[in-house]
Design a protein around this nucleic acid. Structure first.
Lengths: 247, 247
DNA sequence: GTATCCCTTCCGTTCAATGGGACGTCCAGC
DNA sequence: GCTGGACGTCCCATTGAACGGAAGGGATAC
């Protein structure tokens, strides 16, 4: 940028401003936004004005700032997540109607599962997965289902991350989880994310048998329909894969 | 900006780049992106590289560019549309299960209805409303439901737009539609958007009886359950309003 | 009345953004 | 096999847009 201070570009700063908004939707005061974005107040003010001019942010009188509808529109009009979501929604609704519990759809991003969609219902058990939320691979059934069906090279790189502290033990555990997930064709975690819930997820595979997404449910621990549940998920996953390939 | 050419800021250019992606999800070639964004190729190249560095765009080998997951994540993590969507989804699913037809949720933005969510099902009739898509107010039941429950001043301003060409006639028609919508508490358009479909929408009202959103369905022309359908939509709309107020 | 906090505006400094030009690569047509 | 064209990528001198400290207003608390 022009002038002194830390050498980051305008793009960096815009990303910092947009990233500064927390998950809960409320508006931020300008100075809070500046603090969170680690930007000088004046600079934040100018950027917010410019972004608001395009509708990407909205400013309320009094200096409150919140994300704008136009930003949501632009991003959701063309996004890789959208095609996946459209292909998956009918199947997710089917699953949800039958089980009456939480259904979620995730993709792999970095070393985390990124949740693209979630259907929940009053009366269903708690589900930590939020839309646009993330969870580490090894403590989410969605993450395991995704990683268990990736290239060997990627899996090695992932497991290598756990070799640092006291090492091999943890890596071996996760390796075992992945192997079992791959063998069975589905991932399950009982009481890991939440003590009373049971996460089950299956991969959505492309032609080369690589997971492009995962379809999962969160059910109470006493759920008895596992034998019917997994095939239902797998059937739905195949349907989603077919929809993606066709489109 | 620095150097010659047309005086637009970096923010402008970034917005132009992101806006340049069309509705269908496919990736764009760099030079096409530059054309669509009306930016010099070199400048586009640099901006894309920077944005890709933050994951807001993704570049495939060969120069193809597409929106990135991180952008989707950032925007969907905190957005005014998200709170509305979350409050509305359970009710939309209920409606959809009963009717087995398309359900949509829209907000007013400018002189258009912006569709925030849509549930559709194989076998349901055509529905032109796309998620993050727009429709003019006067040819969508969602738009009518939204505009019929706004401030008088805003309605006047809206109707004023139609006074230009041959004027009064069209404005009077729309004024009539709005009046009827307001009186009945729901909007309906038979065969306007699509010759074989019937759009019906009700407003989601805040405490001051202003529409913050609209909840609508698209059903076949021969649908007979109108007397049960409208109350169901209105009940759901009240539920959504309650959820928004409580949150 | 005074102090405090916050948004907003002003303005001189400065360096990041800019984009024309050149290069390497990949095809299709001759 | 050669040639022409289209495209992505890199380089670098120019310059005006971005920067942010300082000062100004307006509201609220003490």
């Amino acid at each position: 940028m022009a002038n002194s201070s830390s050498g980051d570009s305008v793009v960096d700063r815009i990303v910092r401003v947009i990233s500064a908004f927390p998950q809960d939707v409320g508006a931020l005061r300008l100075s809070d936004l500046a603090d969170r974005a680690r930007l000088p107040l004046t600079t934040t003010h100018r950027l917010v004005q410019q972004l608001a001019g395009h509708g990407l942010l909205e400013t309320a009188p009094g200096g409150m700032v919140r994300p704008g509808l136009r930003l949501w529109e632009l991003v959701n009009r063309a996004s890789p997540a959208l095609a996946l979501r459209q292909a998956a929604m009918p199947f997710m609704e089917d699953i949800q109607q039958v089980l009456n519990q939480n259904v979620n759809l995730a993709v792999l991003d970095g070393w985390e599962a990124l949740f693209v969609e979630r259907l929940s219902r009053r009366g269903s058990v708690a589900n930590r997965a939020q839309v646009a939320g993330r969870m580490p691979i090894h403590i989410s059934s969605a993450g395991l289902a995704l990683m268990a069906h990736q290239d060997k090279a990627l899996q090695q790189e992932y497991l290598g991350q756990f070799a640092d502290p006291d090492g091999k033990l943890v890596a071996a555990d996760i390796r075992g989880l992945l192997a079992e997930t791959s063998r069975q064709g589905f991932a399950q975690l009982k009481g890991v994310v939440d003590p009373d819930t049971w996460g089950i997820a299956v991969p959505v595979l492309d032609r080369r048998q690589r997971a492009v997404a995962s379809l999962g449910v969160v059910v109470p621990l006493q759920e008895m329909r596992l034998q019917a549940l997994v095939p239902a998920l797998q059937t739905a996953a195949r349907g989603i894969a077919r929809g993606l390939a066709g489109a």
